[in-house]
Amino acid sequence: MQKKLSLFVASCVLLGMSACSLLPDKADETKNWSVTKLYSEARSEMDGAHYEAAIKLWEKLEANYPFGTYATQAQMEIAYAYYKTQDQAQALAAVERFIKLHPNHPQADYMYYLRGLINFNDSIGFLSVIYSQDPTERDPKATRESFAAFKALVDKFPDSKYTPDAIARMKYLVNAMAQYEVHVANYYYRRGAYLAALNRAQGAVTDYSDAPAREEALFLMIRCYDKMANLDLRDDAQRVFVKNYPNSRFLKPNAGKGGWFNFLSKKAD
C-alpha cells in the first residue's frame, strides 16, 4: 500500500512538471528591442516620473548595448533616476562608477554636481530634525560630503554652468556646519559642561570664520569663559565680539551698557 502511494505521488509530480513544460515561457518583451527602442521607452518612463521602470530599461540598454553613447547616457540616467527615487546609496554608486569610467566625459561636471545634490538633499533631512532631536546624536556627515562634492566640482570645473549654484550651496552648507557646532555647544553649556561647550564654540569660530553662526559661537565663548571664571579670556573675547558685532542681537535684550554682558561676573579690582 505504501509503495503504491509513493508511485502515485511520483506520477503526480511528473505530470505536473510535464504540464509546466507545455506552458509557454513568459517572454521578455524587450529581448529583441533595438537600442533606439530601449532608449525611447526608457526616456518615456523618465518623462512620466516612473523612475523604477526607467532604471530597469536603462540597465537593459547598457547590458545589451554596452558600448557607445547610448550606454554612456544610460549610466548617467541611472544615477539621476536613483537620485529621484531618493535611493542615496545606489545613486552615489552610479555617480562614482560613471566618474571612474568617464573622467573626461563632456558631462562629467554634471555628475560631480549630481553627487553634491544627492548628499545635499540628505543633509537637508538632517537639518530638518536638528531642532527636535538631541544634536549630539546626529552626525552631519552628509553635509560635509555634500560640501566636498561641490568643492570638487568648483575646483575641477570652475567654468561649468553648475558652478555658480554649487558655490551658493557651499555657502549654505558652511553655515549649516557652523550652526551644528553651535547647537552642540549650547547642548553642553545647558548641562554645565562648559569646557566641552567652549571647545565646540571655539571650533565654530575658527573653522567657519565667514559663517553667520560665528556670532553666536563667539558669544557662547564669552559665557563659557565667564562660567569657568577665566575673566581675562572672557574680556578678550568680549572685546572681539563688540568690535565685530556692534549691533548684535545679543547686546540688545537688556537695558544699559553691555546688554546681556551685565549678567557676567565682575572682575576683581
Rank of each mutant, 00 (worst) to 15 (best):
V9Q: 03
D25P: 15
D28H: 09
T36A: 13
S44P: 04
G48Q: 14
L57D: 11
W58Y: 13
W58T: 00
K60F: 01
L61R: 11
L61V: 07
F67K: 12
G68Q: 07
T69A: 12
A74V: 04
V95H: 00
E96Y: 07
E96H: 08
H102G: 02
A108L: 05
L114I: 01
N121E: 15
S128E: 11
V129C: 01
I130S: 07
D139E: 14
E145A: 08
A152S: 13
V154S: 10
V154H: 02
D155G: 01
P158R: 08
K161N: 09
Y162K: 08
Y162A: 05
P164F: 00
D165E: 15
R169Y: 05
Y172H: 08
Y180A: 00
V182N: 01
V182W: 05
V182M: 03
V184R: 02
A185P: 04
Q202C: 00
V205G: 02
P212W: 06
A213I: 06
M221K: 12
C224G: 06
C224R: 06
Y225F: 13
A229H: 11
A229F: 09
N230E: 14
D232M: 10
N247G: 04
N254I: 15
N254Q: 14
G258M: 02
F261D: 00
K267M: 12
